[in-house]
């Protein structure tokens, strides 16, 4: 069994164990309502995490996703408050704004070779400011709450059967992107760009174009998630999503996509988001102080990354010993 498969198996085992523990500790955990809310929470992070996973596979990072959520929410709020343009018409504009942010990030990263994290951190600042700037204000200039009444828009927060629409969208998106990654040339190019950019260029892959594409997709996913968020909350605030990049990073890291690029897939991210959502839900159900949540998220990132490094070193040592034995045998056979 490959080391990644084994890691995933351990993760699923851990997920089930925590689930079991929670259902024993809190009787309401296994209620359908709670499970569906849990999945809804997971999908909220998950949609963003799908785009983020692609960025991570190219060995990049996107710290601007939280702020993209905020700016998208504000764009929608403006349309809803000041225009009568129907939701299906302005939502593409909002999604386009997310792509535009990706374009901006990709431009500075590829054209000026600036470090990814600082570029996206800067655009995070810019977007967070812009979101406040364009927020719907009252007569005194204070940010006012927008109550969303548009039925089409609110429909995004609805359910189909027991499932929330966002959960279905997340799963469909996950399946599509996983398929895209593994079964199309463009998907393969993403892996190649992250694993070995020089080799990718030698093979004729336009790595700059690939980088542009993944950042744009990451922005798109964040925007998409934002629309579901404001539909669920029935309001839009400029603070939406700010800081949520840590949840996304945690989910993706738990899922097993490393920061070194070239490795990772969407299934891991899906498991990671459910894992994270379950822990958050558990904190709630067990009545632990909600302030512990950031500690858990920050702590998880550090612990998982450290354990992964150790695990990888361990697996590599094993593989090296095996390879050495094989070559020795071959040499003996040849001699």
């Amino acid at each position: 069994m490959s080391i990644t498969a084994l890691r995933r198996l351990i993760l699923i085992g851990l997920l089930l164990a925590i689930g079991l523990g929670l259902s024993l500790a809190s009787p309401s955990f296994l209620k359908l309502d709670n499970l569906m809310t849990l999945l809804q929470e997971a999908s909220q992070t998950g949609i963003v995490a799908v785009g983020f996973t692609l960025v991570l596979i190219t060995a990049g990072i996107d710290m601007s996703i939280g702020a993209v959520i905020a700016i998208t929410a504000m764009i929608c709020a403006n349309f809803l408050t000041y225009t009568h343009i129907p939701a299906f018409a302005f939502i593409p504009v909002a999604l386009g704004a997310g792509c535009l942010v990706g374009l901006f990030n990709g431009f500075f990263i590829t054209r000026f070779k600036l470090p990814e994290f600082i570029v996206t951190l800067a655009s995070r600042g810019i977007l967070a400011g812009l979101a406040l700037l364009i927020a719907v204000k009252d007569a005194d200039g204070f940010v006012s709450n927008v109550f969303i009444q548009d039925p089409v828009y609110l429909g995004f927060g609805g359910t189909v059967g027991p499932f929330y629409i966002i959960t279905i969208v997340f799963l469909v998106l996950a399946v599509l992107v996983q398929f895209f990654l593994k079964r199309t040339r463009s998907g393969t190019n993403i892996y190649a760009t992250g694993a070995n950019p020089t080799a990718a260029r030698l093979s004729g892959i336009n790595t700059d174009k690939t980088i542009f594409a993944v950042y744009m997709f990451s922005g798109f996913c964040a925007s998409l998630s934002s629309i579901f968020l404001s539909a669920r909350m029935m309001t839009a605030m400029p603070e939406f999503g700010i800081g949520s990049e840590m949840d996304v990073i945690a989910a993706v890291v738990i899922g097993g996509t490393p920061f070194t690029g070239g490795i990772g897939d969407i299934w891991g991210t899906v498991i990671g988001t459910v894992f994270l959502a379950m822990i958050k839900n558990g904190i709630l159900k067990l009545g632990i102080s909600p302030y512990i949540q950031p500690i858990v998220i920050g702590g998880i990132i550090v612990v998982v990354v450290v354990v992964d490094v150790w695990y990888k070193g361990f697996a590599e040592r094993l593989a090296r010993n095996r390879a050495r034995r094989r070559t020795a045998e071959q040499d003996r056979a040849a001699a």
């Binding site: 080799a199 093979s203 070239g262």
Partner: peptide
């Protein structure tokens, strides 16, 4: 090994692009 992509299979490398 400069032009091989780690994490991919032999076939994927042979047929890259």
């Amino acid at each position: 090994e400069l032009s091989l992509i780690h994490g991919m299979t032999v076939a994927q490398n042979m047929f890259l692009t």
